[in-house]
Design a protein around this nucleic acid. Sequence first.
DNA 1: AAAGATTGAGTTGTCAATCTTT
DNA 2: AAAGATTGACAACTCAATCTTT
Lengths: 174, 174
Amino acid sequence: MADMTSSSLPADQEPTPWLSEEELAAWKAFVAMLLAVPPAIDAQLKRDAGINLFEYTIVAGLSEMPDRTARMAVLAQLAAVSASRLSHAVSRLERQGWVERRTHAAGEPRSTEVVLTDAGMAMVTAAAPAHVREARHLVFDGLTPAQVGQLQKLCGQLLGTAAPETAALLERFR
Amino acid sequence: MADMTSSSLPADQEPTPWLSEEELAAWKAFVAMLLAVPPAIDAQLKRDAGINLFEYTIVAGLSEMPDRTARMAVLAQLAAVSASRLSHAVSRLERQGWVERRTHAAGEPRSTEVVLTDAGMAMVTAAAPAHVREARHLVFDGLTPAQVGQLQKLCGQLLGTAAPETAALLERFR
DNA sequence: AAAGATTGAGTTGTCAATCTTT
DNA sequence: AAAGATTGACAACTCAATCTTT
């Protein structure tokens, strides 16, 4: 793997700190997990509810908000995605009649608000049980309670670097 | 979130076992991490080396193989992806001159073998340092050695469900 | 017919440019 | 000009259908 263990003095700006054997093994497992798990979750949701994990996260997030409403920026932080990716996804959900955009909403003139429709609420409610079953199957059935705690802590820390605002949000509403 | 905590007796086939509070918190953090981290890794690799994480995994995997060669099926298991996704990616890498396909190879007549070219080897070698730095930044800098162990174990178990062959492969070559 | 792999069409994501409001 | 959000072009992924070899 262009040997990520030994240090053969690369002609680099920083003398790169290579990965230890433990770190390399963890990295390989982590990357494989990143490649394998999302498609598995997506496949279940797509099959059973016609949406992907990201879209589910949006509507599920909205379902927990006061008035089932949130600003685009808040949703983007909740899901830890770019504004662009969110905008495209919301357009899709809007086409299905599951959410509605409200521009120039009172109080926050510059922003766009997104509202979960009744149809959208019905969709999440219907989708939730099978989604939870998949979450159990893919993750929780194989973990001890202690490992569940480790998982949360680890993911929280990774988010602290990759998406600090999201990490803070999750921390706050826990 | 279509309340994933309480059980309001859904009219479902199985009486769905809902998530506990701890599980729900872990799930939210996990999903946010799945949405946030891959784009961060992809962005670095794309910027610095012109490939994404999946493609990097392929060429890095090949660089560790005898003769820098592996069958499509083996690569698909290593990276935990579908044959289709792999085939498309290999086509892209082939267009760049980083790998070559060898059909009807000796010994394994039915399969296709993929070989990492010298240019491909040079590309991984050049890309590795910055990639390792990103791995450190996004993951290892924030974790204790014990947490690194937890991460490996956890990912291994998730792979055991989502991609059993991959889990076995990683276990074997550890 | 089964295993190994590829293809093409449709969908989703990314990146950079743009638009609007303050 | 900065914040909030959208757009369009391009790249990557998914799913189902297909092809080839045994």
